[in-house]
């Protein structure tokens, strides 16, 4: 009888521990959102998001963080575009031409490895290449480094979706006489459109939030960049630099920038669910 009781106690104790752990993870997410909202909302104003920094900005004078907002958009859009240019054909054709070969295994392994490379290493690598080419910190350098960071994320996410396409679909297309590439670009693409959108948004979100890779490659400036070769500010670095100052007024801007960043990521997350539903109406289920 005693043993039977012990088992039930153990069961109950473990259930409580599991619920506590689960609760702790959910709580920490809520705590993060609460902290960022409660600090960021009071700091957010129209001036903050519509103006670039004015003279004396870093001592708490006038201005906003428009330079960082626009800079981050340029960087993430550019990086995502270039990553898409390479990642989309790669993911698609990886599945059409060599889905289960050793070569495909190696490509996937390399992509997984690249996914795990810390962004600071991409930053250091990008900076090294830029010095070698004689470039200064610039929008283009930042975009290319972000593209490197985003490529594995986007490609692997797309790859996972394309792999789940039922094999009957390409077979039907082949039976109608279409070639491999036609099947890939016209049939499979249509089917996995929602997954592609999710992958692009995932990579975009990762790109817009990453600070370590653009730290040396994109630089920081108060102006909105007018060419690919001028330095550019970004939201994560705006958070980082402004939180490090001793002035409370400047720290306010860090909170505002952190809030904008968090809302962007939240928005992307919700948007990607919505858009995958919208684009999914052409998919065969």
């Amino acid at each position: 009888m005693a043993k039977w009781k012990w088992q039930n106690t153990e069961e109950k104790v473990m259930q409580v521990l599991m619920l506590l752990s689960f609760g702790l993870i959910v709580m920490s997410l809520l705590l993060i959102l609460f902290t960022i909202l409660s600090k960021g909302l009071p700091a957010l104003s129209w001036e903050m998001i519509s103006q670039t920094p004015k003279g004396g900005f870093y001592f708490g004078k006038e201005g906003g963080i428009l330079n960082a907002i626009v800079g981050s958009l340029y960087l993430a859009l550019g990086g995502t575009f270039i990553a898409f240019l390479f990642g989309f054909p790669l993911a698609l054709l990886l599945n059409i031409y060599s889905s289960k070969t050793a070569w495909a295994d190696l490509v996937r392994l390399s992509l997984d490895i690249l996914w795990g490379v810390p962004s600071i290493v991409y930053g250091a690598f990008g900076f090294t290449v830029m010095i070698f080419l004689g470039w200064k910190a610039s929008l283009l350098g930042g975009i290319l480094t972000l593209a490197l960071l985003e490529l594995p994320i986007m490609t692997r996410a797309m790859d996972e979706v394309i792999r789940r396409v039922p094999p009957e679909l390409p077979r039907a297309a082949y039976a109608l006489g279409s070639t491999n590439s036609e099947t890939a670009f016209f049939v499979i693409t249509r089917q996995v459109l929602p997954g592609l959108a999710t992958a692009v948004l995932l990579a975009f979100g990762r790109g817009i939030g990453d600070a370590a890779s653009v730290l040396f490659t994109a630089g920081y400036t108060d102006r909105i960049p007018d060419s690919l070769f001028s330095p550019v500010a970004s939201l994560p670095l705006a958070v980082f630099f402004q939180l490090g100052t001793p002035f409370p007024e400047v720290q306010q801007r860090a909170y505002a920038a952190a809030l904008i960043l968090t809302l962007t990521v939240l928005g992307i997350s919700i948007f990607s669910r919505g858009i995958s539903y919208f684009l999914g109406r052409h998919s065969i289920r």
Binding site: I36, G205, A211, P236, L261, R273
Partner: peptide
Amino acid sequence: PLLDLLAAIPSVVYGVWGVL
């Protein structure tokens, strides 16, 4: 979705949370 969101929060935001 919750885990995806937690994974998507930029690391500087975690940093701000940590500092605060």
